[in-house]
Structure formats: C-alpha cells, structure tokens
Amino acid sequence: MPVDRRQFVTLLGVIALMPLPRAGFATPREVAMETLLIDKPSGGVPNNKLPVMIYHRVIPPNVVDNADYLEHLFRSNGWPPQWRYPVYTFTHFHSNTHEALGVFAGTARLQLGGENGKIIEVKVGDVLLLPAGIGHKQISADEEFMLVGAYPPEMKADLCHDEPAQLAARTKAVIAVPLPDTDPVTGHSEGSMLAWHKK
C-alpha cells in the first residue's frame, strides 16, 4: 500500500522514538568479570587499593572489526579511546589516571603490580581496567597482539617508571585520582561501578 508524505513523516517520528537494539554491544549479563587486588607497593610502583577489573568475551563473535568495536564501546561509555598499540615491555604505571586496555588482536602475557607481580594471560576480547598506580608490562606476546587504550574524558596519561625514590609523591598523586563516572565496558552498571564505588 503506498504511503503519502504525511504518513511517511509520522512513521519516521515513531521510528526515532523507538529504542535502538543493543545486540551488537556487550551487556553486563554477557561479560564475564573477575577482579585482582594488587594493593601493596612494589619498589617504586604504588599500586592501588582498588582492584584491577578483568572482563572476558567483551567482543561478540560476529564482529567484523574488533578494534572499531572496542573503540565504539569505550567511547559510548564515556572513555574516549586514544591509541592502538601493544603494552610497553618495561614496568610502568600512570599516577594521574585510570586506564582501560582492550585486546583486539593476538595474545600476550602481562605482569601486573611491579617486577615481582602477578603474570596473567590475555587474548582477543579481554579488557583490563587498571586503577591509577598499577604497574604493568608485557612479558611476551605473539606478533598480532594489539590493544585499544582509553582513559576518562580529557585525561592524558603520564608515564611513570619504577623509581623507588619517587614512591611517596606518586602514591599521593594516585590517591588523589577521582573515581570514574562510568565503567568503560558496562557503562553505569556493574563492573567498577560496584567493585570500586563500594570501597
């Protein structure tokens, strides 16, 4: 049946009011989460009383461009993506911001917490949410390993090395970093919204 101009405009208005499907985005029910507490300093690495958040299977199986998906997810949840790169192969941390790392290609072994820290394996679809001060470095990786990195709005991460003489000042800076308003994976619900805000 043909639709006249008035009916067409009305139909467009109705469609505009309909909720958009979120089938292409991770939801809290679909994402497996775990936490890792690294709250003791190590050398010149302050670490943090907030747990590291580790999310698994964030990227749905039918996604064509993994990096684009993660960038869109982070951005839509208030964490503007800033780079695509692996993890540095030396221990470092950020004293002024929390950091989201989304694996869009390959696999790697990362060390968290400093030179004597825990080693974890990450693969495509994993996202790490690192509190400010958490030491991290790449131990090994395959040739494809790549991440999307994101931070809370208007944040530019500093780059701090494992320098024991700077520990006191950097610990003070880490404590002053505010909690983020949203979680890069789950938005306003679950994830760090529960694990960090209850601390």
Rank of each mutant, 00 (worst) to 15 (best):
residue 1 M to R: 15
residue 10 T to S: 15
residue 11 L to Y: 10
residue 11 L to E: 14
residue 13 G to V: 09
residue 14 V to N: 08
residue 21 P to K: 07
residue 23 A to H: 09
residue 24 G to N: 13
residue 24 G to M: 11
residue 25 F to Q: 15
residue 25 F to V: 11
residue 27 T to K: 12
residue 37 L to Q: 09
residue 37 L to E: 09
residue 40 K to S: 14
residue 41 P to K: 06
residue 41 P to N: 10
residue 43 G to R: 09
residue 46 P to R: 06
residue 48 N to P: 01
residue 51 P to S: 07
residue 54 I to H: 14
residue 55 Y to N: 05
residue 55 Y to V: 08
residue 60 P to T: 04
residue 60 P to C: 02
residue 62 N to A: 11
residue 62 N to Y: 13
residue 63 V to W: 01
residue 63 V to S: 00
residue 64 V to T: 14
residue 65 D to S: 13
residue 68 D to S: 15
residue 68 D to G: 13
residue 68 D to A: 14
residue 69 Y to A: 06
residue 72 H to Q: 15
residue 72 H to V: 08
residue 73 L to N: 05
residue 74 F to Q: 06
residue 81 P to T: 03
residue 83 W to V: 05
residue 83 W to S: 15
residue 84 R to Q: 15
residue 87 V to R: 00
residue 88 Y to A: 09
residue 90 F to A: 11
residue 91 T to I: 13
residue 93 F to T: 02
residue 97 T to N: 13
residue 97 T to Y: 08
residue 99 E to I: 01
residue 102 G to W: 07
residue 102 G to S: 07
residue 102 G to Y: 04
residue 113 G to E: 03
residue 114 G to P: 04
residue 114 G to Y: 04
residue 115 E to R: 12
residue 121 E to C: 08
residue 123 K to G: 15
residue 130 L to R: 09
residue 131 P to V: 08
residue 134 I to R: 00
residue 134 I to H: 03
residue 136 H to F: 07
residue 138 Q to G: 10
residue 145 F to W: 06
residue 146 M to E: 12
residue 147 L to H: 04
residue 147 L to V: 00
residue 147 L to C: 13
residue 149 G to Q: 01
residue 151 Y to I: 01
residue 153 P to G: 01
residue 154 E to C: 01
residue 154 E to A: 13
residue 161 H to G: 08
residue 162 D to C: 03
residue 164 P to C: 07
residue 167 L to I: 08
residue 171 T to I: 00
residue 174 V to I: 02
residue 178 P to N: 01
residue 180 P to S: 03
residue 181 D to W: 00
residue 183 D to H: 00
residue 184 P to N: 05
residue 186 T to Q: 04
residue 186 T to R: 02
residue 189 S to M: 02
residue 190 E to W: 03
residue 192 S to Q: 03
residue 194 L to Y: 02
residue 195 A to C: 03
residue 195 A to E: 14
residue 196 W to A: 05
residue 198 K to M: 13
